[in-house]
C-alpha cells in the first residue's frame, strides 16, 4: 500500500492560529485543504512538507455568503432573502467543490462556477476537494506526477529533485501545466482573491494570482493563505466553461476554455477568453477576446476569435493526448464556447 511519509499535523481552529503555525513551520510547512492534491503528491514523494497545517477546522473559511452592501440591498428589496439570491457572492476557500456545484445561489447567479466545479474529477473527490485547493492546485506533468522510483529512474525533473524539464529539456524553466478547472473561470470572471498573511489581508485579481512557471506557479507569498474568492456583480455578463478530457470523470482537463462576455444590448462590450491546461498558468488570450468585442458574436467573429486563440495555444508533452490535436481542439472548444454564448445573446 502506498503510504504517507511522517509529518507533524496541525489543526488550527482560527485563521490567526493557522497563519502563525504556517509561519513557524517556514518552508517545510504546507497548508492542506481537502487533501486530494497534496496527499497523493506526498505519497509519491514529490511534495514533502514536514509540517501540514490543516484548514478543515478553521472557522469561517467554509461559507458561501453575500458580499456586503450588494447582498444586503438585494435582500432589502426583495424582502425574501432565501428565495432571492444575493447579488455578489463571496466563496470561502474551504467550500467543497460539491457544495459549490450544488449551491442554489451559485447556480442561479454564477452557473459557470457551478458548472466548472461539477466537472472536476469525481463526486467523491468533490466531496473532499475545495475551491481554494483547486485554485492552488499544484501544476501537473506526466514526468512529475509519478512515484519516487519512477522519477528516480529518469533522474528526476527540475520541479522536484532534478534539474531538467523533460518536457522541454533545453528550457530554463519548468513546463508543468496548470490543471485547475476553476482557475481559468475565475480569471475570466476577474474574481478577486483574498489572501490573508501575517501582515493582514490583501486582494488580488485572479489573473494576477498565477505565474507562467511550473514551479513558482502562484504569486502568493509562502506564508499567505487564500481565504476567499469575491465574485463580481452577476449582472450584465455571461460566461461559460468547456472542458476537454479523455473521460467524463476523474480526468484533469487537457484543455479548459473559459469565456466571459459583457453584453451591451446584443453586442459584446468586453470579453475575456482564458485557456486552461495549456500553460503553467490560466492563459488569457486577449487577441481572441478582441476578435469578438464590438461584434454580435457573428459566426465570422466566432471563427476569428477561435483562430486567434488557436495560434498562441501551445500545449506541451505534459498531459494526456497528442500535442497537435490538443492545439487543434483549442479552436474547436473556443468556437463551441462562443456559440453557446451566442445562443444566449440578449435580444
Amino acid at each position: 500500500m502506498l503510504r504517507l511519509p511522517p509529518f507533524t499535523y496541525l489543526q488550527p481552529t482560527t485563521l490567526k492560529q493557522a497563519l502563525r503555525m504556517k509561519s513557524d513551520a517556514g518552508p517545510d510547512g504546507m497548508y492542506v485543504a481537502g487533501g486530494t492534491d497534496l496527499y497523493p503528491n506526498m505519497k509519491r514523494r514529490h511534495q514533502e512538507p514536514k509540517v501540514v497545517v490543516a484548514l478543515g477546522r478553521v472557522r469561517g473559511l467554509r461559507s458561501i455568503r453575500a458580499d456586503g452592501p450588494t447582498g444586503r440591498r438585494a435582500r432589502d428589496r426583495s424582502n425574501r432573502p432565501t428565495a432571492q439570491p444575493p447579488n455578489r457572492l463571496v466563496l470561502g476557500a474551504m467550500t467543497t467543490l460539491t457544495e459549490l456545484a450544488a449551491h442554489p445561489h451559485v447556480n442561479a447567479r454564477y452557473p459557470v462556477v457551478a458548472r466548472a466545479a461539477e466537472l472536476i474529477s469525481t463526486p467523491l473527490l468533490r466531496n473532499m476537494g475545495t475551491l481554494g485547493g483547486n485554485l492552488c492546485l499544484d501544476t501537473r506533468c506526466n514526468y512529475y506526477n509519478q512515484s519516487y522510483e519512477w522519477r528516480k529512474a529518469i533522474h528526476f525533473c527540475m520541479k522536484k529533485d532534478g534539474d531538467v524539464c523533460w518536457v522541454a529539456p533545453s528550457s530554463p524553466r519548468c513546463w508543468a501545466v496548470n490543471s485547475s478547472d476553476l482557475a481559468p473561470v475565475m480569471v475570466a470572471l476577474d474574481a478577486q482573491l483574498v489572501l490573508a498573511g501575517p501582515k493582514g489581508e490583501r486582494v488580488v485579481p485572479a489573473g494576477r494570482f498565477y505565474n507562467n512557471d511550473g514551479i513558482n506557479y502562484l504569486t502568493k507569498q509562502l506564508d499567505e493563505m487564500l481565504t476567499e474568492v469575491r465574485l463580481p456583480d452577476p449582472d450584465g455578463w455571461d460566461a461559460t466553461y468547456h472542458k476537454l478530457r479523455r473521460r467524463g470523470a476523474f480526468d484533469f482537463p487537457v484543455l479548459g476554455v473559459a469565456v466571459w462576455v459583457r453584453w451591451d444590448g446584443a453586442r459584446v462590450a468586453d470579453a475575456r477568453i482564458v485557456l486552461g491546461a495549456v500553460a503553467s498558468l490560466p492563459q488569457e488570450v486577449p487577441e481572441a477576446a478582441r476578435a469578438i468585442v464590438g461584434t454580435d458574436l457573428s459566426i465570422e467573429a466566432v471563427e476569428a476569435s477561435a483562430l486567434a486563440a488557436f495560434k498562441p495555444s501551445k500545449p506541451m508533452d505534459n498531459t494526456d493526448f497528442g500535442l497537435s490535436w490538443r492545439k487543434e481542439m483549442t479552436r474547436q472548444f473556443v468556437k463551441r464556447a462562443l456559440l453557446e454564448l451566442r445562443e444566449r445573446r440578449p435580444s
Binding site: T36, Y39, P40, K43, T98, T122, L124, L125, N127, M128
Partner: peptide
C-alpha cells in the same frame, strides 16, 4: 491509494469520501 479509482469509498458523516 491515490484517489484514482474509488475502491476505498466509505461515508463520513453520511458523505461518501475516499
Amino acid at each position: 491509494e491515490l484517489g484514482e479509482c474509488g475502491t476505498c469509498t466509505v461515508t463520513l458523516d453520511g458523505v461518501p469520501i475516499l
